[in-house]
Design a binder for these strands. Sequence first.
DNA 1: TACACCTGAAAGATTCTTCTTACACGTATA
DNA 2: TATACGTGTAAGAAGAATCTTTCAGGTGTA
Lengths: 106, 106
Amino acid sequence: MTPTGDELLAMLSALANPLRLRIVAQLAGGRDYVSHLAREIGISRPLLHMHLQRLEAAGLIVGSLELSDDGKAMKYYEVVDFDLHLTASALAEAVRTLPPTDQEKP
Amino acid sequence: MTPTGDELLAMLSALANPLRLRIVAQLAGGRDYVSHLAREIGISRPLLHMHLQRLEAAGLIVGSLELSDDGKAMKYYEVVDFDLHLTASALAEAVRTLPPTDQEKP
DNA sequence: TACACCTGAAAGATTCTTCTTACACGTATA
DNA sequence: TATACGTGTAAGAAGAATCTTTCAGGTGTA
Protein backbone atom coordinates (compact mmCIF):
# COMPACT_ATOMS: atom_id res chain seq x y z
CA MET A 1 0.00 0.00 0.00
CA THR A 2 2.97 2.26 -0.31
CA PRO A 3 2.31 4.44 -3.32
CA THR A 4 4.86 4.72 -6.10
CA GLY A 5 7.01 7.81 -6.30
CA ASP A 6 4.90 9.21 -9.09
CA GLU A 7 1.63 8.58 -7.31
CA LEU A 8 2.99 10.10 -4.15
CA LEU A 9 4.23 13.16 -6.00
CA ALA A 10 0.88 13.59 -7.67
CA MET A 11 -0.95 13.47 -4.34
CA LEU A 12 1.50 15.73 -2.59
CA SER A 13 1.52 18.40 -5.25
CA ALA A 14 -2.25 18.16 -5.50
CA LEU A 15 -2.56 18.87 -1.79
CA ALA A 16 0.18 21.48 -1.68
CA ASN A 17 -2.17 24.35 -2.42
CA PRO A 18 -4.44 26.28 -0.07
CA LEU A 19 -7.42 26.28 -2.40
CA ARG A 20 -7.23 22.59 -3.11
CA LEU A 21 -6.83 21.90 0.58
CA ARG A 22 -10.02 23.86 1.14
CA ILE A 23 -11.79 21.96 -1.59
CA VAL A 24 -10.93 18.61 -0.06
CA ALA A 25 -11.91 19.89 3.37
CA GLN A 26 -15.25 21.08 2.04
CA LEU A 27 -15.92 17.81 0.26
CA ALA A 28 -15.00 15.94 3.41
CA GLY A 29 -18.26 17.32 4.78
CA GLY A 30 -20.23 15.76 1.96
CA ARG A 31 -20.39 15.57 -1.81
CA ASP A 32 -21.23 18.65 -3.81
CA TYR A 33 -21.57 19.81 -7.40
CA VAL A 34 -19.23 22.21 -9.13
CA SER A 35 -21.23 25.44 -9.26
CA HIS A 36 -22.43 25.19 -5.70
CA LEU A 37 -18.97 24.33 -4.45
CA ALA A 38 -17.56 27.36 -6.26
CA ARG A 39 -20.05 29.63 -4.50
CA GLU A 40 -19.34 27.94 -1.20
CA ILE A 41 -15.61 28.49 -1.39
CA GLY A 42 -15.85 31.84 -3.10
CA ILE A 43 -13.91 31.30 -6.31
CA SER A 44 -14.83 31.30 -9.99
CA ARG A 45 -16.20 28.16 -11.58
CA PRO A 46 -13.46 27.79 -14.21
CA LEU A 47 -10.80 28.08 -11.53
CA LEU A 48 -12.50 25.49 -9.39
CA HIS A 49 -12.84 23.28 -12.42
CA MET A 50 -9.09 23.33 -12.89
CA HIS A 51 -8.36 22.45 -9.29
CA LEU A 52 -10.91 19.66 -9.28
CA GLN A 53 -9.21 18.11 -12.28
CA ARG A 54 -5.89 18.23 -10.49
CA LEU A 55 -7.34 16.57 -7.40
CA GLU A 56 -9.13 13.93 -9.43
CA ALA A 57 -6.00 13.16 -11.44
CA ALA A 58 -4.21 12.54 -8.16
CA GLY A 59 -6.93 10.12 -7.11
CA LEU A 60 -8.01 12.16 -4.11
CA ILE A 61 -11.53 12.91 -5.30
CA VAL A 62 -13.90 11.43 -7.86
CA GLY A 63 -16.58 13.11 -9.93
CA SER A 64 -19.74 11.71 -11.45
CA LEU A 65 -22.04 13.40 -13.90
CA GLU A 66 -25.64 13.02 -12.84
CA LEU A 67 -28.98 14.32 -14.04
CA SER A 68 -31.04 16.30 -11.56
CA ASP A 69 -34.83 16.01 -11.32
CA ASP A 70 -35.33 18.99 -13.58
CA GLY A 71 -33.01 17.60 -16.22
CA LYS A 72 -29.88 19.57 -15.55
CA ALA A 73 -26.49 17.93 -15.86
CA MET A 74 -24.79 18.13 -12.47
CA LYS A 75 -21.26 17.05 -11.77
CA TYR A 76 -20.90 15.79 -8.24
CA TYR A 77 -17.54 15.36 -6.59
CA GLU A 78 -16.71 13.42 -3.47
CA VAL A 79 -13.62 12.56 -1.50
CA VAL A 80 -11.87 9.25 -2.02
CA ASP A 81 -11.14 7.56 1.29
CA PHE A 82 -7.37 8.04 1.26
CA ASP A 83 -4.97 7.55 4.14
CA LEU A 84 -1.45 8.74 3.51
CA HIS A 85 1.10 7.88 6.14
CA LEU A 86 4.18 10.00 5.64
CA THR A 87 7.44 9.25 7.40
CA ALA A 88 11.02 9.57 6.20
CA SER A 89 11.30 5.82 5.60
CA ALA A 90 7.96 5.69 3.79
CA LEU A 91 9.26 8.40 1.48
CA ALA A 92 12.51 6.56 0.94
CA GLU A 93 10.47 3.52 -0.01
CA ALA A 94 8.51 5.47 -2.60
CA VAL A 95 11.59 7.16 -4.02
CA ARG A 96 12.98 3.76 -5.00
CA THR A 97 10.38 3.52 -7.72
CA LEU A 98 11.49 6.80 -9.25
CA PRO A 99 13.84 6.74 -12.22
CA PRO A 100 17.36 7.91 -11.36
CA THR A 101 18.34 11.50 -12.01
CA ASP A 102 19.85 11.67 -15.46
CA GLN A 103 23.34 12.88 -14.72
CA GLU A 104 26.10 12.28 -17.18
CA LYS A 105 29.77 12.62 -16.47
CA PRO A 106 31.52 14.50 -19.27
CA MET B 1 -0.57 17.10 17.08
CA THR B 2 -2.54 18.18 14.06
CA PRO B 3 -0.44 20.78 12.27
CA THR B 4 -1.91 24.16 11.41
CA GLY B 5 -2.95 24.85 7.85
CA ASP B 6 0.18 26.86 7.23
CA GLU B 7 2.49 24.24 8.67
CA LEU B 8 0.77 21.53 6.69
CA LEU B 9 1.03 23.54 3.48
CA ALA B 10 4.71 24.17 4.11
CA MET B 11 5.38 20.46 4.59
CA LEU B 12 3.29 19.39 1.64
CA SER B 13 4.80 21.85 -0.79
CA ALA B 14 8.25 21.02 0.52
CA LEU B 15 7.68 17.35 -0.24
CA ALA B 16 5.89 17.91 -3.52
CA ASN B 17 9.07 17.87 -5.55
CA PRO B 18 11.05 14.91 -6.89
CA LEU B 19 14.42 16.33 -5.92
CA ARG B 20 13.39 17.18 -2.39
CA LEU B 21 11.80 13.77 -2.03
CA ARG B 22 15.13 12.27 -3.02
CA ILE B 23 16.98 14.45 -0.57
CA VAL B 24 14.81 13.34 2.32
CA ALA B 25 15.10 9.75 1.20
CA GLN B 26 18.87 10.04 1.09
CA LEU B 27 19.06 11.68 4.49
CA ALA B 28 16.79 8.98 5.88
CA GLY B 29 19.80 6.70 5.42
CA GLY B 30 21.95 8.91 7.60
CA ARG B 31 23.11 12.48 8.02
CA ASP B 32 25.28 14.07 5.41
CA TYR B 33 26.95 17.36 4.57
CA VAL B 34 25.98 19.58 1.69
CA SER B 35 28.77 19.06 -0.84
CA HIS B 36 28.80 15.31 -0.44
CA LEU B 37 25.04 15.10 -0.65
CA ALA B 38 25.12 17.14 -3.84
CA ARG B 39 27.54 14.68 -5.43
CA GLU B 40 25.50 11.76 -4.15
CA ILE B 41 22.30 12.98 -5.74
CA GLY B 42 23.95 14.45 -8.78
CA ILE B 43 22.92 18.08 -8.67
CA SER B 44 24.77 21.35 -8.23
CA ARG B 45 25.56 22.58 -4.76
CA PRO B 46 23.68 25.88 -5.03
CA LEU B 47 20.60 24.05 -6.21
CA LEU B 48 20.79 21.61 -3.35
CA HIS B 49 21.32 24.49 -0.97
CA MET B 50 18.03 25.99 -2.09
CA HIS B 51 16.12 22.77 -1.64
CA LEU B 52 17.65 22.15 1.76
CA GLN B 53 16.47 25.55 2.91
CA ARG B 54 12.96 24.77 1.77
CA LEU B 55 12.95 21.46 3.63
CA GLU B 56 14.41 22.99 6.76
CA ALA B 57 11.88 25.83 6.71
CA ALA B 58 9.14 23.21 6.61
CA GLY B 59 10.64 21.52 9.66
CA LEU B 60 11.39 18.27 7.87
CA ILE B 61 15.15 18.39 8.22
CA VAL B 62 17.63 20.26 10.43
CA GLY B 63 21.12 21.41 9.70
CA SER B 64 24.06 22.04 12.01
CA LEU B 65 27.35 23.68 11.16
CA GLU B 66 30.27 21.70 12.49
CA LEU B 67 34.04 21.87 12.24
CA SER B 68 35.80 18.86 10.78
CA ASP B 69 39.13 17.58 12.09
CA ASP B 70 41.04 19.48 9.47
CA GLY B 71 39.29 22.74 10.30
CA LYS B 72 36.73 22.91 7.51
CA ALA B 73 33.25 24.18 8.20
CA MET B 74 30.82 21.40 7.34
CA LYS B 75 27.08 21.74 7.33
CA TYR B 76 25.41 18.50 8.26
CA TYR B 77 21.75 17.87 7.66
CA GLU B 78 19.56 15.18 9.11
CA VAL B 79 15.93 14.20 8.95
CA VAL B 80 13.51 15.29 11.64
CA ASP B 81 11.44 12.38 12.89
CA PHE B 82 8.14 13.47 11.38
CA ASP B 83 4.99 11.40 11.02
CA LEU B 84 2.28 12.97 8.89
CA HIS B 85 -1.03 11.21 8.86
CA LEU B 86 -3.10 12.51 5.97
CA THR B 87 -6.78 11.81 5.70
CA ALA B 88 -9.64 13.95 4.45
CA SER B 89 -10.79 14.75 7.97
CA ALA B 90 -7.25 15.53 9.13
CA LEU B 91 -7.02 18.01 6.28
CA ALA B 92 -10.38 19.53 7.17
CA GLU B 93 -9.09 19.97 10.68
CA ALA B 94 -6.00 21.82 9.49
CA VAL B 95 -7.95 23.98 7.08
CA ARG B 96 -9.91 25.44 10.00
CA THR B 97 -6.82 27.32 11.07
CA LEU B 98 -6.46 28.98 7.68
CA PRO B 99 -7.79 32.51 7.23
CA PRO B 100 -10.95 32.66 5.08
CA THR B 101 -10.65 33.42 1.40
CA ASP B 102 -11.03 37.16 1.03
CA GLN B 103 -14.09 37.40 -1.14
CA GLU B 104 -16.11 40.56 -1.16
CA LYS B 105 -19.64 40.87 -2.44
CA PRO B 106 -20.04 43.98 -4.61
C1' DT C 1 -37.49 35.04 -26.71
C1' DA C 2 -35.18 35.94 -22.65
C1' DC C 3 -33.36 34.53 -18.43
C1' DA C 4 -31.60 31.38 -14.90
C1' DC C 5 -29.37 27.49 -13.81
C1' DC C 6 -26.04 23.69 -15.07
C1' DT C 7 -21.71 21.93 -17.78
C1' DG C 8 -16.99 22.21 -20.39
C1' DA C 9 -12.72 24.34 -22.38
C1' DA C 10 -9.33 27.55 -24.71
C1' DA C 11 -6.30 31.86 -24.60
C1' DG C 12 -3.55 35.00 -22.38
C1' DA C 13 -1.52 37.54 -18.37
C1' DT C 14 0.67 37.03 -14.21
C1' DT C 15 3.07 35.10 -10.70
C1' DC C 16 5.77 31.47 -8.47
C1' DT C 17 9.42 27.69 -8.80
C1' DT C 18 13.16 25.91 -10.38
C1' DC C 19 17.74 25.98 -12.13
C1' DT C 20 22.25 27.88 -13.83
C1' DT C 21 25.98 30.77 -13.53
C1' DA C 22 29.04 33.56 -11.20
C1' DC C 23 30.91 35.54 -7.19
C1' DA C 24 32.95 35.84 -2.30
C1' DC C 25 34.90 33.80 1.85
C1' DG C 26 37.21 30.24 4.73
C1' DT C 27 41.16 26.43 5.88
C1' DA C 28 44.67 22.92 4.57
C1' DT C 29 48.20 21.07 1.44
C1' DA C 30 51.62 20.91 -2.56
C1' DT D 1 51.04 31.12 -4.75
C1' DA D 2 48.08 27.84 -6.57
C1' DT D 3 44.92 24.13 -5.92
C1' DA D 4 41.38 21.47 -3.58
C1' DC D 5 38.08 21.11 -0.34
C1' DG D 6 34.35 23.23 2.47
C1' DT D 7 30.65 27.20 3.11
C1' DG D 8 27.07 30.89 1.47
C1' DT D 9 24.45 34.15 -1.69
C1' DA D 10 22.74 37.02 -5.52
C1' DA D 11 21.11 37.73 -10.49
C1' DG D 12 18.85 36.27 -14.38
C1' DA D 13 16.99 32.65 -17.56
C1' DA D 14 13.68 29.20 -18.19
C1' DG D 15 9.75 26.67 -17.05
C1' DA D 16 5.48 25.56 -14.60
C1' DA D 17 1.46 26.82 -11.96
C1' DT D 18 -2.21 29.86 -11.14
C1' DC D 19 -5.94 32.85 -12.28
C1' DT D 20 -9.10 35.69 -15.34
C1' DT D 21 -11.66 36.25 -19.20
C1' DT D 22 -14.28 34.65 -22.88
C1' DC D 23 -16.61 31.45 -25.47
C1' DA D 24 -19.92 27.40 -26.42
C1' DG D 25 -23.07 23.92 -25.17
C1' DG D 26 -27.24 22.05 -22.49
C1' DT D 27 -32.24 22.16 -19.88
C1' DG D 28 -36.26 24.45 -17.73
C1' DT D 29 -39.37 28.40 -16.65
C1' DA D 30 -41.43 33.24 -17.25
